[in-house]
Amino acid sequence: MAEFGQFAITGVTVGMVYALIALGFVLIWKSSGVANLTLGQLVLVFSWFTYGMLVQAGFPVWLGMPLVVLFAVGVGWLVERIALRPLIGQPILSLITVTLGVAFFIEGMVSFIWPKSVAALPRLFPDEPVHVGAAVVSQEYLWAAVISVVLFVLLTLFFKRHRMGIVMRAVADDQMAVQACGIPVAQIFSRSWMFACALAAVGGVLMSSIGGITFGLVETGLKAFSVVILGGLDSFLGAIVAGPIIGLAENVGGGYLTPLTWPGVREIIPFVIIVIVMFIRPHGLFGERRIERI
């Protein structure tokens, strides 16, 4: 039982970080209908940039972290400006593949600038683990979970209450009608990319402060896809619920299945979940079923 508690707590907290990254995906999807397949690479490059700031340049955390977020926002702006904007209104195939091109490019750039394949970030949170019942959790995990929840609440409020959030939802409904109101739609897209990248940066830092910076971070981004698929592409609530579910499945399932099957079974669980969801409930737990007409 203690074992189960341990798996569960690790799973839920790490799942919250997946959820955080997934929120960025949902943000872009909601406001522009673009599927951002660069997530994994973005997480990777932001983690390395954090390494560059905190370790290579030796900045203190209070200075380094804002710089990282700033950098992320800049990257978001750049990606939207260069790759996505010329393709506004193009078929979904082009929109998906252009993000793949961006992913490729970023991957190349990372190995260009940071040829090392692994690195560790300095500890951002205190060392001593926290005891939750019989289970032991390191503080990083808890912080990650707390930050995710806070950001989720903020984002939800933003979309419900803030002018820009409302307009972002409007753009998802009818781009041209928003334009007719004299609103710069391209700027809205740009903002949502900037937000999403900032989220990916925070998620990346949390992930890599837990597990170090490796190429495996790209797969963390891919796990965020399983979160959005399970939760529903256009639902923040879906992301925040599905994240812990994926994390739980990965850790509990991995913990108990490994002796029965092959080692490393936990890596594959999110992808199996994707396939299962795809077969039984493709729009996810909370996603809107889109009505299509000819």
Partner: peptide
């Protein structure tokens, strides 16, 4: 400002939010 042909409201937003989008700028 142009109001487009054919009742292009933002379907998933509520009435007041629709009006606020108009005033965004």
């Amino acid at each position: 400002i142009q109001a487009l042909e054919g009742r292009r409201v933002f379907e998933h937003l509520n009435t007041e939010e629709n009006l606020l989008v108009g005033a965004y700028q």
